[in-house]
């Protein structure tokens, strides 16, 4: 069950043009930096990326937008990105905006083997257009389908050879959900350890959902909004 690969480039083997990718992270927090760099080196194009956000101009998925590798983004919030806006307005890029909880739960459904979910998010709004709905009790819910992802790419704090993952603080966010929804899931970790080193009680995502794992390096971990209080 050793799923270790040597490098980001080895981990993304098999990813080709026009595939559907899932990428973990919230804003720039917990994004798979090493794998994004490898995707840019590889130059795959026409990608559909499912990710809560689209990075910023010069970091995260924003870098893949600069290199024109993304055909479509499926996200809940895509602000803070001028190149994104330019490509969207010029028609080079498609975007499908989805309520954040719907996005998370459609990923969860995929990982739980359920074809669809019912959620009240978006009832009575334009995102309900053309969707099936059903009333339970006195409340209306929209039918939303599970995602099918060719390759999921996530970032964790610690992982072991079996692909068991532990996330740190709020960098967990979408990572375990994206991981669960992938036909093939790639995990990059800050610290890769032999099986047995992680306490089974502390695993956030069991390795059955992970197919390839590698030790990442040189994490920049850029902060989007640095808010502090003075040291007194």
């Amino acid at each position: 069950m050793n799923k270790t690969v040597d490098s980001a480039d080895a981990a993304i083997a098999g990813i080709g043009d026009n595939m559907i990718l899932g990428l973990g992270g919230f804003g720039l927090c917990g994004i798979p930096e090493n794998s994004i760099s490898a995707l840019i080196r590889k130059g795959v194009k026409g990608l559909t990326c499912i990710s809560n956000n689209a990075g910023v101009d010069d970091f995260g998925i924003g870098l893949m937008l600069q290199s024109k590798q993304v055909k479509k983004m499926i996200s809940s919030y895509v602000g803070e990105n001028a190149e994104f806006e330019r490509q969207l307005l010029s028609g080079e890029l498609e975007v499908d905006l989805i309520p954040q909880g719907t996005l998370a739960t459609r990923l969860l459904a995929a990982g739980y083997g359920m074809p669809a979910i019912f959620t009240p998010a978006g009832v009575g709004t334009e995102i309900a257009n053309g969707k099936e709905s059903r009333v339970f009790g006195e409340k209306e819910y929209l039918l939303e389908y599970a995602f099918h992802i060719d390759y999921s790419i996530v970032k964790a704090w610690k992982g072991d050879e079996y692909g068991n993952l532990i996330f740190k603080q709020t960098s967990r966010n979408f990572n375990p959900l994206i991981a669960m929804a992938g036909k093939i899931t790639i995990a990059e970790v800050e610290e890769l350890v032999p099986a047995g080193e992680l306490d089974p009680d502390h695993i956030h995502l069991p390795g059955i959902y992970v197919h390839r794992i590698f030790q990442g390096s040189n994490y920049e971990k850029r902060i989007e909004q640095r808010t502090v209080r003075p040291r007194i």
Binding site: C29, G30, A104, L107, R226
Partner: peptide, 25 residues
């Protein structure tokens, strides 16, 4: 400040005694 610890506005924050983390779902 810690890049792994932010709020939904992407601002750096801290935890408090009794805080808990979980995934987006």
């Amino acid at each position: 400040e810690d890049a792994d610890l932010i709020n939904a506005g992407k601002q750096t924050i801290t935890t408090l005694p009794g805080s808990a983390f979980f995934d987006s779902a």
